[in-house]
């Protein structure tokens, strides 16, 4: 069966691409520290050596619209084009293209339908920045096949928070029951407190730092019980009118498991919203072995050099 190489939860900030690629006077003052943190976060995926990426995000009214809105949808395509004209226009995001993995898509769809999730599907799906941001930050070489899962955190009526957690638990079980020898990283992006198109938008930090501190702690420690006890669809609007995107973090808590502390955590207080990065290694943390191997390399090189002499 497939192995889960890593579980990763992250905010997705469409401005990262522009900030990290800009130079000179164009480069914002926070770009260097942001880029350093992203590169450290990226390493947590690299060392997990994934073969396939299961990507959880949410379409921002790009392909899905109010005349036909899926609550939970799985991409079931051979390939995916990605990013849209208005994301190019507003964020400077590049057009992208990814390979799919129809076998894993089909397994998740069939398994989801058989275990209580009536998942929608799409055979021709153009992805947006909720899914391409983590490719840009975590796997910029964009060399792995992906399976996208979209959730509706955007167009009410929305599914209950509990349902997001349950879908996360189901996705983990489904990946672990996929008859394949591949290593799958499950990566989901959401938001902490966030306001878009409201009076609290684009402040010096996220609209509700107290919520952010609490939310980060729930995620970091895997405290699903407390999180579900405090969060409702309605009260998520209080920290910011787009904070329902936090439910994608709750989905990822479901993937990571109740009470499981993240193996890696970092965050960054930016204008407009807080960035937060989490990695879990369900099969054990590969970093000590990777670090030991790296440390051994100079010794081996020295030994080889001594032999040659």
């Amino acid at each position: 069966m497939a192995e889960i190489a890593a579980v990763i939860a992250s905010t997705h900030h469409p401005f990262y691409y522009k900030a990290s690629t800009s130079t000179g006077a164009e480069r914002p003052p926070f770009a260097d520290v942001w880029q350093t943190k992203i590169e450290a976060f990226r390493e947590t995926l690299t060392v997990a050596e994934p073969d396939v990426l299961l990507l959880v995000g949410s379409d921002h009214f790009h392909q899905f619209w109010l005349d036909n809105m899926p609550q939970f949808l799985v991409g079931h395509a051979e390939q995916y084009d990605a990013n849209w004209y208005n994301e190019e226009r507003e964020f400077g995001l590049p057009r992208m293209h990814m390979q799919g993995d129809r076998d894993l898509s089909g397994h998740i769809l069939r398994g989801g339908l058989d275990t209580g999730f009536d998942l929608a599907f799409s055979n021709e799906l153009r992805l947006d920045h909720s899914v391409t941001c983590p490719i840009i930050t975590l796997r910029p070489q964009n060399d792995l096949p992906v399976v996208p899962v979209y959730t509706n955190i955007f167009a009410p009526p929305l599914p209950q928070p509990k349902r997001f957690v349950q879908l996360g638990q189901a996705l983990r079980d489904l990946v672990e029951s996929w008859p394949s020898d591949k290593r799958v990283a499950i990566i989901g992006t959401g938001h902490l407190s966030l306001e878009l198109g409201g009076p609290r938008q684009f402040g010096p930090h996220g609209p509700d730092p107290e919520f952010d501190a609490k939310a980060v702690e729930w995620i970091r420690t895997g405290d699903i019980e407390r999180c579900l006890g405090e969060v409702t669809i309605e009260n998520l609007l209080e920290p910011g009118n787009a904070t329902q995107g936090f439910m994608d973090f709750m989905l990822m808590m479901g993937v990571a498991g109740e009470g499981v502390t993240a193996d890696y955590f970092d965050n960054l207080d930016l204008f407009h919203t807080m960035e937060a990065y989490f990695t879990w290694y369900p099969g054990g943390d590969p970093r000590p072995a990777v670090a030991a191997a790296a440390a051994a390399l100079p010794e081996q090189a020295a030994a080889v050099a001594a032999q040659e002499v």
Binding site: L66, A155, G197, P199, Q201, L237
Partner: peptide, 21 residues
């Protein structure tokens, strides 16, 4: 523009108008 936008909406407080369709 984004900050002017926030300023022009500053008279609104929670709960914001319902956006359900």
């Amino acid at each position: 523009f984004q900050l002017e936008y926030a300023q022009r909406l500053s008279g609104y407080s929670l709960p914001y108008p319902d956006i359900t369709t």
